[in-house]
Every structure is written in structure tokens, then in C-alpha cells.
Design a protein around this nucleic acid. Structure first.
Length: 808
DNA sequence: TAACAGGCAGTTTTT
DNA sequence: CTGCCTGTTA
């Protein structure tokens, strides 16, 4: 109503426009109507963000902006799917949305790279690259580390991978990384990084991070590509901007035509108004810093885009006042943020409750009590589907599951093992990847002896030695098994049979001829059957050892039908590589590809870029259990957050810096703001961690919740609370950054070798490592301590064996 | 080559 | 208490 002031830049008052704006608040409207120049929308939790974004796109199209010149980027397929869907339903499914690009960052990058790889001449990158996921990355990395004769215990693939990933997110190529590191550690990482890159390229593959890094590089180097993109996209919109990393920032800058800029240059050149870039996000919900997301991108938006308009959406349409009050009070403890006044018109409502329980069983019981109570007592009955339990780590789900099961409450766990991650599905896909790309050594290694066919590790090692000398793919080596030395006759025969099988599928690489499958689904089916996977998993499921085994044959069948579905919906015209825009450069430069192979590649790409097939939507009547990370973007009438203890939330691995600590706080903030009506937060006095019951310290975040909005309830037995018997409970789960007044001691009866009073913060001396400070202690049998030594860094020691002397 | 036992480490995970 | 990796044995 009052928003007319900001509406005067144009004078559309058609009925359609009215309906686009009618039910919006003034700030929401402002965000929708600000179309030209940079715009930052700070969208608080539950403030109607998606609505604003979709209306804004619809509005752009309505005032005459061609849909094909609008590019909307999201992080998840779910978000892009929803956005596309909602825009379409606003505009009708007609021509209006033709060419509108709504995509994830990664999918966009994949399409740009495929289209322009040859134009931009990126070294070693072929347009038909495969996309490696974390699993593939790990396999490759292990190989690389072994090839460099480094040990995987000194160089754990997981941490090396995260170092490489961080580097890529920061736009550091292997060469740059090598150039800047001088110490032993980073020089070694650089070596591994370089070899890893070489491995990827020779396998004709890129990893997820490469999609971003290579796209940024390509856009930077090739003015041709850049200009193509500029001609195509005039309006850029980025969702969840607080989660962008440096590479994504760079890509956005280059796409939108910030002249020759890098993030460091700050202000852009002589543009009068600045680019039409709209970013939407909430710094208070930035929870992916550990994955390279850089909260500075959103905090510094106004500095990077001078003249940016800022709209704050602070009104919350989700939660009751006390819940919002608790969330607000908590998040105010963060320093690095942009404050937003959070408010709601939903007055009244129950206060959130903070309970302290005896142990995790007790905690779980109180959660089930809450769920049952709320279900029956509410004036409007609340269904199980409107309830959720959140926790910091997946390991906390187990006790909760037990309690729900015994209470007879239906639940579903939203967890990572999605369809395409299952072992049997991954194996089938690896076969298909070998079919699509004979150079894919990682996929080949995975399945060459799966099911076992007498081609063991040593034989493969011999072939690998032979091929790496000649720069050939592994599969080529197997083809020439006769020339490879030291291979047993049996293995040689098996390899011959394997090659014959693959050639059968690919028509010896031609993908044509009578013996080749006529359709994708037929190919998938054949591969599963003829590879022996089908009978292998059938036998396994007959044996009926585990629950998972029973499902595997079904999952393989499911894969076939997913291929069939893809095939039916596949529309070559909407192929990512074709632009409906006004340009046609670079089109038709690629060599013609057999249709089946093209289809297979498109299918494999879609599979690689779609992580969770079983999306996290609250299903038919069951309570949802999930991590706090997974909860982002969802809402439930009833929410319980469990495990509010030092070491758990904030997590013990996230207490090294204020930045990490603030992210932990945001995690709780996200959890709280999911709740619409009822919220219970709990901590437990004792918790069994890895089989050892441990005394806990309640989370510092609980003290930050305001008494006026929150009810505190002590449910732990008072007499057990004081723990006068010196029961054999070990030390706390946490400790690290806790003030020294909160030190907890390992009980003397449990500690070995005379380190009875070892506490976090103690200074100790080790016969070999010298002096150090105790960072964490775990009690019980085989008690361990993490000690930070001045000379050799942090080590975890088993107290029984490490002859530690306490210094003070 | 393949099955098995023992040792060791152990957040979160949009693509 | 788990799951994963390594090294051993049949």
C-alpha cells in the first residue's frame, strides 16, 4: 500500500501486475520492483524470500525483459526446481518463460564448460569430461598418494582432499598453490594436488570444485566466452548468497560484466548504475563456511558494488514471538553480521523450553513426551509430519530412533545415503562411465573386479605400471594384456573376457551396429545383467544377511527405470549446450557424437549433479530426524533440538576461532528459526560417546537465551547431578575452549600411569615430543588425551602408554 | 586371489 | 560402539 513511492519508476498498473504485488509487504515489494542496478536482499528466516525472488523474476518478464536474458542461480537442484516451477505458475506455462535460465551454479558451469571448452582452450579439458564426485575423488587421490610413495596415514586422503578443495574454492590452481607454499607440508600437498590434477585430466574428468574453478578461469581468460555470456544474460539473481565461495563470487562478477575486476579491486569502473545483479541471502544463516563459503561476499556486497540498493526483510511469517525472541537474542551474540530487526505479528504462543536431562535416553524420552503431548493437546491436532528433531551430528540420531520406535511414533531420517550413492547403484554407474569414457581409470578400477572375476589388485597394478609408462588408459592396457609382463594366465583370460564384454556394449567404440543397444535404458539393463552385477546382488539378497542387501536388486531395477524416464524426458533442444539467445557462436564446432553416447553422457551428467534423489521433504505422517545443516530452508510446527552440550554444539572441532564459533551459533539459530509453534531444546548431563559415558558441560549457547522468552527446566536428578560417588564417568566431551574454571577432571580410578589429575589446559611433558598443553581428554578404558606440543604439533595419545608427566 | 581379523580414528556435506 | 583400511592367511 505505502510502497507506491518506490513504484514510480514505471507505471504499469495492469491487473496482472497488481496480482503480483498485492499480497506483498512494503519491503518485499521494494525488492520486487528494484530491477536495475545491484540489489542486496537481506532475507531473514521465514521472511518470504522465495516468494520475493519468484515475483521479481515474473515482474522482470512482465515489464518486457526477455526471459532468456534472466539467469537465476541456486545451490541446490531442489531450490532451482522450485523456483522454476513457481515462476512458471506465475507467468503461465506459455512462451513467456522460454529461455529463462534457472540453474545451480554447478550445472551452469558444466554446461558452459562443455560448450566452450574448445573455444577457450583450457589445457587438457575435453568437452565430454566426466564429473567426479567425492567418492571418485577419494579413489583417485589414494592412487596419487600411493604413486608418490607417500603413506596414507601421514597424508589422510580426506584431509588432503579438503586442502585441495579449499584451494580450488579460493581459485588457487596447482601451480599457484605450489608457488606460494614453502614449508614441507604445503609443498607436499602441492605435489599431490598437481598429480591429482594430472590424474583427473588424463581420466577425462573434472571434480565438483573444478566446475567452478575452470569456469572462472575460462571466463577470465576468454573475452569471446565472456562477451557471449554478456550478450545472453542481462539480469543475474543469486539465491543463498551467504553461501557463495570465492570462485562463485568470481564467476558472478565475470558473468555480470564487472570490468576486469577481482574481488580485491573493490569498486568497479565507470558504470553509472552498476550491473543488474540481485543477491538474496542471510548472513545469520551462513553454515557452510567449512566448505569454503565466504560470508564476506554478502557482508561486503555494498562495498563490492557501490551504489547497491539494500532491502531488509525482517518480518517473520513463520514463528511465534517467543521463538523469534529467543532466536534474535541468541544471534545478537555474533559479531560478524548485519543486524536485522526481527519481528512478527504472531503474538502469543508457548515459550520455548530448555530442559536438562540425566542422559541421552532420558533426553530422548522427554522429546517423545513432547511430541505426544503436543499432538494431543493442541487445539488443532498436529500431525507427526509437522514435527522434527534436529541434532549436530548424525551419531545422535540412534538413541532418538530407539526412543521413537519404542514409543510407537513413526519417523524418517533425512540422511545422506541417497539413491545414487548406494553401492550397487554406484557400481552400475561406474560400468556406464567406463562405457561412456574409456579413459576413466577410476571408474574402471572400481568395477573391474566387481563382481569378482579373477582380476585382482596385483594384476591391475601390473597393467597400471605398463600403461602409465606409455600414457595409456588402463582399459587399453587390459586390451593388450598379452604384452604386459607378470600377469597370470588366469587374469589374462579374464581381462580378455572383460574387454570383449565392454566392446560388446560400445560396438567397439562406435556405438553403432546391430549389436548395440537401441536405447539408453536397454543399455543400462544390459550392462547390469551382462556385467554380472544383477546375479551378484540377487544372490546376496537371497542370502538375506542385511536389510540393505535385500533392497539392492530393486535399486538396480530402479536405476533402469530412472534411465528410461530420462530418455523419455530428454529433449535435445533444451540441451544445456544450446542457447536460445540471440547468438550462435561456437555452435556446431563439436565433432558429431553418436546419439546413444550423447544420451548416455547427458544421463551421467544429470546423475552426477543431482545429489539427493530422496529429497528431504517431510513425508507422509512421520516425524523427521535430521542434522541442523539439513534443516536449513525447512519449517515445522514442532521442533526439538537435542545435544546442546559443549563439544557437540558448539562442536569440539569448531572451537578454534571466533568465526567457527559464530558458525556454530548460527547453526542453532537455524534450528530455532525452523520452529513455528513449539520448540524444545535439550542438553544431557551425561552422554555416552563412543561407548564411554561422559560427563558433559551444557552449551554456552543456552546461557545466551533470554529468560523472558525461554523456560528453563531442570530434569536431571539432583543427587546424581552432584556426582558425589566419583562414579567412573570419564571427562567431558568437550572442553577445548572452555574457560579454565570449567575444567573437568578424569576420575583418578580410571586414569593410568599416574596422570590422575590430567585436565584440559594442563601442561605436560612427553619423553619424545617435549612440552605441550592438553587440549582434550577422554576418559574410561584406554583414556586418551589430545596434546598440543610446542615442537611437533597436536597428537592424540593413549594415556596408558604415553608416559606423560604433568608439569603443573 | 579372496576372505577374515585386528587396529585406528571418528563434524557438518547444497554439487 | 561403529566403519574403514591394512595386513594376514587359506
Amino acid at each position: 500500500m505505502e510502497a507506491t513511492g518506490s513504484m514510480n519508476s514505471f507505471d504499469h498498473t495492469a491487473p496482472f501486475e497488481d496480482s503480483l504485488l498485492a499480497d506483498l509487504t512494503a519491503p518485499q515489494r521494494e525488492a520486487v520492483l528494484h530491477t536495475e542496478g545491484p540489489l542486496l536482499v537481506l532475507a531473514a528466516a521465514g521472511s518470504g524470500k522465495t516468494r520475493v525472488i519468484t515475483r521479481r523474476i515474473a515482474h522482470l518478464v512482465h515489464i518486457g525483459v526477455p526471459a532468456w536474458s534472466v539467469l537465476a542461480l541456486t545451490f541446490t537442484n531442489k531450490a532451482s526446481g522450485e523456483m522454476r516451477h513457481r515462476v512458471q505458475s506465475l507467468l503461465g506455462d506459455g512462451r513467456q518463460t522460454r529461455g529463462l535460465t534457472v540453474s545451480t551454479f554447478h550445472a551452469l558451469c558444466a554446461r558452459l564448460l562443455r560448450k566452450y571448452a574448445e573455444v577457450a582452450a583450457l589445457p587438457g579439458l575435453k568437452p565430454d569430461f566426466a564429473i567426479y564426485d567425492t567418492n571418485d575423488q577419494m579413489s583417485l587421490l589414494k592412487r596419487v598418494i600411493a604413486d608418490l610413495s607417500l603413506s596414507t596415514s601421514n597424508w589422510p586422503p580426506r584431509s588432503v582432499l579438503s586442502a585441495i578443495s579449499n584451494a580450488k574454492n579460493e581459485l588457487l590452481t596447482a601451480e599457484m598453490f605450489a608457488a606460494r607454499g614453502t614449508d614441507f607440508y604445503s609443498r607436499s600437498i602441492a605435489k599431490i594436488y598437481t598429480a591429482y590434477e594430472r590424474g583427473l585430466r588424463t581420466a577425462g574428468a573434472v571434480d565438483f570444485d573444478d566446475l567452478l574453478l575452470l569456469t572462472a578461469t575460462m571466463l577470465e581468460r576468454s573475452s569471446e566466452v565472456r562477451e557471449d555470456c554478456h550478450r545472453r544474460w542481462q539480469y543475474l539473481l543469486i539465491d543463498e548468497y551467504q553461501d557463495t565461495n570465492r570462485a562463485q563470487f568470481k564467476i558472478a562478477s565475470l558473468l555480470i560484466g564487472m570490468p576486469e575486476s577481482t574481488p580485491d579491486d573493490g569498486p568497479l569502473g565507470g558504470l553509472t548504475r552498476g550491473p543488474n545483479v540481485c543477491v538474496v541471502g542471510d548472513p545469520d544463516q551462513a553454515i557452510y563456511g567449512w566448505r569454503g563459503a565466504d560470508i564476506s561476499n554478502i557482508l561486503d556486497f555494498e562495498r563490492n558494488y557501490p551504489g547497491a540498493h539494500v532491502v531488509t526483510l525482517g518480518e517473520n511469517f513463520r514463528s511465534t514471538a517467543p521463538i523469534l525472541g529467543a532466536a534474535d537474542a541468541l544471534i545478537r551474540n555474533n559479531k560478524r553480521r548485519k543486524h536485522k530487526d526481527l519481528f512478527t505479528s504472531r503474538d502469543g504462543g508457548d515459550k520455548p523450553v530448555v530442559v536438562t536431562t540425566r542422559d541421552e535416553q532420558h533426553e530422548a524420552a522427554l522429546v517423545t513426551d513432547l511430541l505426544r503431548k503436543v499432538r494431543h493437546e493442541a487445539q488443532e491436532p498436529i500431525g507427526w509430519r509437522d514435527m522434527a528433531v534436529f541434532y549436530r551430528t548424525n551419531s545422535l540420531s540412534r538413541v532418538m530412533e530407539d526412543a521413537l520406535r519404542t514409543a510407537g511414533i513413526p519417523y524418517t531420517i533425512a540422511r545422506g545415503t541417497s539413491f545414487f550413492e548406494r553401492e550397487e547403484v554406484r557400481n552400475a554407474l561406474s560400468y556406464l562411465r567406463v562405457v561412456a569414457n574409456a579413459a576413466d581409470d577410476v571408474s574402471l578400477s572400481r568395477i573391474v573386479n566387481m563382481p569378482t572375476r579373477g582380476i585382482g589388485g596385483t594384476s591391475i597394478d601390473h597393467v597400471r605400471a605398463w600403461t602409465s609408462e606409455r600414457g595409456l588408459p588402463l582399459l587399453e592396457g587390459m586390451r593388450h594384456a598379452g604384452e604386459v609382463p607378470d600377469i597370470s594366465a588366469r587374469a589374462r583370460t579374464s581381462m580378455g573376457a572383460f574387454i570383449e564384454m565392454v566392446d560388446h556394449w560400445t560396438g567397439a567404440g562406435s556405438f553403432m551396429g546391430a549389436k548395440v543397444s537401441s536405447s539408453l535404458s536397454e543399455l543400462v539393463e544390459r550392462v547390469i545383467r551382462e556385467s554380472g552385477l544383477e546375479s551378484h546382488y540377487l544372490a546376496l539378497s537371497k542370502a538375506g544377511k542385511s536389510e540393505a542387501d535385500l533392497e539392492r536388486p530393486e535399486n538396480l531395477a530402479e536405476l533402469v527405470s530412472s534411465a528410461r524416464q530420462f530418455e523419455n524426458e530428454f529433449d535435445p533442444d533444451s540441451d544445456p549446450a544450446s542457447f536460445p539467445g540471440p547468438e550462435a557462436a561456437a555452435q556446431g564446432r563439436l565433432a558429431p557424437v553418436p546419439p546413444l553416447l550423447a544420451m548416455l553422457r547427458a544421463y551421467l551428467e544429470s546423475v552426477a549433479l543431482v545429489a539427493d534423489a530422496d529429497a528431504v521433504d517431510p513425508e507422509q505422517g512421520s516425524v523427521t530426524l535430521m542434522t541442523l545443516h539439513a534443516a536449513k530452508g525447512l519449517e515445522f510446527k514442532v521442533v526439538a533440538v537435542i545435544g546442546l552440550e559443549e563439544g557437540l554444539l558448539p562442536h569440539s572441532r569448531a572451537q578454534n576461532s571466533d568465526a567457527e564459533l559464530e558458525e556454530e551459533r548460527r547453526l542453532l539459530f537455524v534450528g530455532i528459526t525452523r520452529a513455528m509453534e513449539h520448540l524444545q531444546i535439550s542438553s544431557s548431563r551425561y552422554r555416552t560417546i563412543r561407548g564411554v559415558p561422559e560427563r558433559t558441560i551444557s552449551s554456552r549457547f543456552l546461557e545466551e537465551l533470554p529468560r523472558e522468552h525461554v523456560t528453563f527446566s531442570e530434569q536431571a536428578d539432583p543427587y546424581r547431578d552432584s556426582d558425589p560417588f566419583g562414579d567412573d564417568f570419564g571427562d567431558d566431551a568437550a572442553g577445548a575452549a572452555r574457560p579454565s574454571s570449567d575444567r573437568r577432571f578424569v576420575s583418578p580410578t580410571r586414569s593410568a600411569s599416574g596422570v590422575g589429575n590430567l585436565a584440559t589446559g594442563s601442561r605436560v611433558r612427553h619423553p619424545q615430543f617435549g612440552d605441550g598443553v592438553v587440549v582434550t581428554v577422554t576418559g574410561g578404558m584406554g583414556a586418551r588425551a589430545t596434546v598440543k606440543f610446542a615442537s611437533v604439533g597436536t597428537k592424540t595419545l593413549v594415556l596408558q602408554y604415553a608416559r606423560l608427566a604433568v608439569l603443573d
